[in-house]
């Protein structure tokens, strides 16, 4: 879709343009309508995320369109990962606080009668470093989420595992070693296993926190291809500090930068090609041009 990702980077705007063209064609084919017409999967309004007294990121208002890839980009330390962990309620689990409103469809993620377990089932997550359960086999890893969620039945689990591994482009690699320890796989394979594990519980949204940062270029390319293909079924929110990656795989992008008081803030959001091609905010322009961050 986006050419050879290991090759010398093309100008960002060019990469984004190619990607946008390809995606419009693809979504027109699969969904029969332009992707911009679908209602947002996740809506953030005036969101501020803190650890105790320290505000990590503030005043985020952002609509994340369904079945597209939305990239959160920006230099490290500006609250992208923290914001991502607020969306599936991992942040408040570890003692942080979240203000403002985050909605999954019509549901208030932080509503009084919203169960975080159910929210996390619907909003999956893939972490920076591959983290398969070390004591489990490949198969057990893939179906672990289904078991957590009370799904029973061997045949059902088996089918779901096969389908999830197909989706994660890992089936052919692991179909003969489903019962071997997951930690025996390579780093890239482990990360795709984690993607399969997340997909197996049929989430509507998949949060990906720099999923390639621990991988080599070839494994990275495979994951990137996977991301663009998965967007046909799942809404993807991708945190990355790599602008070329954002340009290659995302439809929408949101740029986060540190404010004057060292608090992260959303500077600009929009279609990736426009954002890289003709940014409206001067700070975005500087960042995209490599002058900050």
């Amino acid at each position: 879709m986006s050419g050879d990702p290991i090759a010398r980077p093309e100008p960002l705007s060019l990469v984004a343009e190619q990607r946008a063209a390809a995606n419009t064609a693809a979504s027109a084919l699969t969904h029969g309508h332009p992707s911009s017409a679908t209602p947002p999967a996740v809506t953030l309004e005036g969101v501020q995320v803190s650890f105790g007294d320290h505000v990590a990121v503030r005043n985020v208002t952002l609509a994340i369109p369904a079945r597209q890839v939305t990239a959160l980009i920006g230099p490290s330390g500006c609250g992208k990962t923290t914001l991502l962990r607020a969306i599936n309620r991992l942040h408040d689990h570890t003692g942080g606080s979240v203000e403002g409103s985050i909605k999954l469809g019509d549901i208030d993620v932080y509503g009084a009668d919203t169960r975080p377990e159910l929210i996390r089932r619907r909003i999956g997550m893939v972490f920076q470093r591959p983290n398969p359960f070390p004591a489990m086999s490949v198969f057990e890893n893939v179906v672990s989420g289904l078991r957590f969620n009370g799904v029973r039945g061997r045949a059902l689990l088996r089918d779901a595992a096969e389908s999830a591994l197909h989706h994660a482009a890992l089936w052919d690699t692991v179909k003969d070693r489903l019962n071997q320890p997951a930690v025996g796989l390579s780093g890239g394979q482990q990360q795709r296993l984690c993607i399969a594990r997340a997909l197996a519980v049929e989430p509507e949204v998949l949060l990906m926190d720099e999923p390639c940062s621990a991988l080599d270029p070839i494994a990275t390319a495979k994951i990137e291809n996977l991301i663009t293909r998965l967007a046909a079924d799942v809404t993807i929110v991708l945190v990355t500090h790599n602008m070329f990656q954002a340009a290659r795989v995302s439809d929408q992008a949101a740029v986060f930068l540190l404010g004057e008081d060292r608090v992260g803030e959303l500077v600009e959001a929009g279609a990736t090609d426009e954002l890289f091609h003709e940014p409206k905010n001067p700070r975005t322009r500087d960042y995209v041009a490599g002058r900050v961050g």
Binding site: L90, E117, G124, M125, F133, F148, N149
Partner: peptide, 9 residues
């Protein structure tokens, strides 16, 4: 976190 993110209690 891997377990929690899958919907585990």
């Amino acid at each position: 976190e891997a377990a929690l993110a899958l919907g585990a209690t």
